[in-house]
Amino acid sequence: MSSILIAVVLLATLAIIFGAILGFAAVRFKVEGNPIVDQIDDLLPQTQCGQCSYPGCKPYAEAIAAGEKINKCPPGGESTIIALADLLGVEPEPLDAEHGAEKDVPMVAIIREDECIGCTKCIQACPIDAIMGAAKQMHTVITDECTGCDLCVEPCPVDCIDMVPIETTLQNWHWDKPKNLIEMINIADTADQNVYKEVH
């Protein structure tokens, strides 16, 4: 009987001691983290296009924090989904096609300036104030800031806004990933020596 008592007391004491240590550690080594919404928001592309059906990235981040699916952001695409899955410890899912497809190349809006009638409709549409201009004056997109969200295209009454791919310059050009050469020599076409030509 007494041995049982001793065991119980011992275990209880141990539990209290370890609990205290853990509690102390939790306070002492607390990791100051961003609130989860901010962390999620940081991973979203900030295109603010609303394709996720929320009025911007932050609202979507809030929705995700509240349990919304993570696969609704087409501009972010797969990489964003993976990053979110990683952050939240959930399984990555394929992009929800309902909200649109991921674009291959980043785009920016360009206003054909001589056609612009200065209606300010696009200014009102742009979620990040990337369009400059006043009423009845010509409008211009600040290309460096434009996220390519498309939102300004539709409201323009004279259709003078185009979405164009971001231009490659010496500054942003870089080598492509080398082709996976082994994969290129598929059995089917080893006979064809042209493969080698393509490779190089």
Binding site: D41, L44, P45, Q46, T47, Q48, G56, C57, K58, P106, P127, I128, D129, A130, D144, E145, T147, N172, W173, H174, W175, D176, K177, P178
Partner: peptide, 28 residues
């Protein structure tokens, strides 16, 4: 070539990150 590609991608990512930070500020 792999390293050049990777460096370019890393740079691109960083530029995109910066841009997205800016857009966030502008949006807010």
């Amino acid at each position: 070539q792999y390293y050049r590609y990777a460096k370019g991608e890393i740079k691109e990512e960083r530029v995109a990150q910066e841009k997205s930070n800016r857009s966030k500020i502008r949006y807010e």
